[in-house]
Every structure is written in C-alpha cells, then in structure tokens.
C-alpha cells in the first residue's frame, strides 16, 4: 500500500513539473516605424500624377539626439543605414523617452532632416517578454532638399509590420 501511494505521489510530481512553462519570450518585441520611398511622375499629356517605388542608390540614416545641457542636437554614434545601396524602405526606431525623434537622412549626396512627433505608450506583453513601447505618430516635419512630400499612412507604430510613412521624391 505504501509503495502504491509513493508511486502515485511521484508521478503527480512529475506531471506537475512537466506542465510548468519555461521563461522564453515567444512574442516579437520589434517596434519600428516603416518608411517607404516613392517617386512621383507627372504626365504632361494626360496631366495625371502617378507614383512608383523609388530605389535610392546610396542611403545613410542616423538619429539626432538632443543634448539637454547645450540644447543642441548631435548625431547618435550608431548608424542605422550606412551608405546602403538600392534602398526603397527603411525601419526607424522612435525615441522611447521623448515625444520627438529626429533623423538625418542622406540620399546619395543630398541631406534632409526628418522630425517625427509622436505619443508613447507602454504595452505590457507578459511576464516572460516584459513591456514594449509603442507609438502614435502625431505629425512629421522634414526639410525638402531631396524629399518632396511626406504622407502618414498608419499612425500606430507597433510590432505589426505596416507602412507608416510614405516619402515622395
């Protein structure tokens, strides 16, 4: 009898151990603003604007961070895209601790500065994955050396891979 009780208890313990979960996070935590490049064509004869995907020959993108002491922006050490060839889409990380994210974008030899104003949200995933910061784009301001115009397609920036901004040349 004692032996039977022991066996049942032993297997109940094994069963409980086998049903415990591990601590691996299986959810994606990658939050990036997706920007796609387009070129606008104007047909003189038909007088219709058409757009097509733009592939930039050489692209360099770097963040600009505000120095609170001097009140001036300086380039972030890490370069997001470094002289990358044939680029038609970029993914940019928005600043979690600020409501604006500024980027210096060099298209071939022409430089533009794009500023994204956004609201930040804490998004709790799970105990295993922790928390991520999601964003909602309020507005986008840019210089117009290479960039002609900008269109916000989807304001919510989260783990879903969606086109947030269209950048027209």
């Amino acid at each position: 009898m004692k032996k039977s009780i022991f066996i049942v208890l032993l297997f109940s313990i094994l069963l409980n151990y086998s049903c415990t979960s591990d601590e691996t996070c299986t959810q994606t935590k990658y939050v990036k603003l997706t920007t796609n490049f387009y070129h606008v064509h104007y047909n003189d004869t038909t007088k219709i604007y058409t757009t097509s995907t733009l592939s930039v020959d050489s692209l360099t993108v770097q963040g600009l961070k505000l120095d609170t002491l001097t009140g001036q922006y300086h380039l972030v050490d890490s370069i997001l895209y470094n002289n990358q060839k044939k680029v038609s889409s970029i993914n940019l990380p928005l600043n979690n601790s600020s409501t604006q994210s500024k980027f210096r974008i060099r298209f071939n030899a022409i430089v533009d500065t794009m500023t994204i104003y956004h609201t930040n949200f804490n998004d709790y995933l799970s105990l295993e994955c922790g928390c991520i910061k999601t964003h909602s784009i309020d507005t986008v301001i840019t210089t117009h050396h290479y960039i002609d115009s900008i269109q916000i397609k989807i304001h919510d920036v989260n783990t879903i891979n969606a086109e947030n901004i269209r950048l027209y040349n």
């Binding site: 961070k65 972030v76 990380p93 979690n96 601790s97 804490n122 928390c131």
Partner: peptide
C-alpha cells in the same frame, strides 16, 4: 508586477515600471 524594464539600445534610454 515589478521591475519591468524597457531598454532602448539605439537612443540609449532605460525605463523601469
């Protein structure tokens, strides 16, 4: 739920909730 940190390696920020 304590000490839930959000680390931003690019902008160099760290937040604990």
């Amino acid at each position: 739920v304590t000490n839930v940190t959000i680390t931003d390696n690019y902008w160099g920020t760290n937040e604990s909730n």
